[in-house]
């Protein structure tokens, strides 16, 4: 097997230069999907028989909740790759994924809360699902704080990777919490096995929004990664040249 791509991926410079060309395309597809999904979900999907229009929050709530969990896996796996192969790039991606994942989790909590008021009758309840997602938010915040706490970058990276790995057990707990315990939160609508319990006319915008949020997460992580690359490689010639060029253009 040819491992060249893997080693190239490990080069911050290669990553930075490669992604420069990708960004506008990813952004274009992301925002087109997002606009289509949102407009479809808000104005064209039929209203729900029981919940009326309030269910339209699902088109944001579920995709950001999916990404809050998928993003955590991405962060933890990047941390593991960094720990095992001591790959610079892996740690940079891990550090970049933390704030994006934290915002996704925050949004899952906030949109869920806004949805809860008109349907359940409360903004918040300490059931197993909501509490475990709050723990997820604190895990992300922990990784962000830990990164700032150490003077030495290598130590900080390793500590963050270990915290991410320890926290990984929370993801299956969040996912299964609604099946294992009695909660106010309802079980999953889109199931990994078996049929979804949402009418097809309401499902398509949901699938579009899930795809849009996956792409958005990728886009945001690439942007954060690029800045972190420049920060960490600031003493190298190529970064210095790149910034000089950008400064020249600005004048």
């Amino acid at each position: 097997m040819n491992w060249q791509w893997f080693h190239r991926l490990g080069s911050p410079r290669w990553f930075y230069e490669k992604t420069t060309g990708w960004l506008p395309w990813i952004a274009l597809v992301t925002f087109s999907l997002m606009i289509v999904g949102m407009v479809w979900g808000l104005a064209f999907a039929p209203l729900d028989a029981k919940q009326g229009n309030s269910y339209r929050i699902i088109y944001l709530h579920m995709p950001v909740a999916v990404l809050s969990m998928a993003g955590y896996y991405a962060m933890a796996i990047a941390g593991a790759v960094g720990l095992i192969w001591r790959m610079k790039m892996a740690f940079i991606v891990m550090v970049a994924a933390a704030p994006v994942g934290a915002v996704m989790t925050f949004l899952a909590l906030v949109t869920g809360s806004i949805w809860g008021k008109p349907t359940w009758g409360t903004w918040w309840i300490w059931d197993a699902r909501l509490t475990s997602v709050l723990v997820l938010f604190f895990l992300y915040m922990g990784v962000i704080a830990l990164q700032q706490a150490y003077q030495n970058r290598d130590t900080a990276d390793k500590a963050c990777a270990i915290l991410s790995l320890v926290g990984m057990v929370n993801i299956p707990i969040i996912y299964k919490s609604v099946d294992w315990w009695s909660t106010l939160h309802q079980p999953a609508t889109i199931k990994m096995v078996g049929e979804s319990t949402i009418d097809p006319s309401m499902k398509y915008p949901l699938l579009i929004m899930i795809a849009a949020l996956y792409l958005f997460f990728t886009l945001a992580v690439i942007l954060y990664t690029r800045v972190e690359v420049l920060r960490r490689e600031s003493r190298t010639q190529w970064v210095s040249d790149l910034l000089t060029q950008a400064a020249n253009k600005r004048r």
């Binding site: 949102m38 808000l42 009326g52 229009n53 309030s54 339209r56 929050i57 944001l60 709530h61 950001v64 949004l107 906030v110 949109t111 806004i114 949805w115 008021k117 008109p118």
Partner: peptide, 15 residues
């Protein structure tokens, strides 16, 4: 949105 407007629109704007 038949009374659900404030909830739906605030969720979308915050996001």
């Amino acid at each position: 949105m038949k009374g659900h407007g404030p909830f739906v629109w605030s969720a979308y704007s915050i996001s």
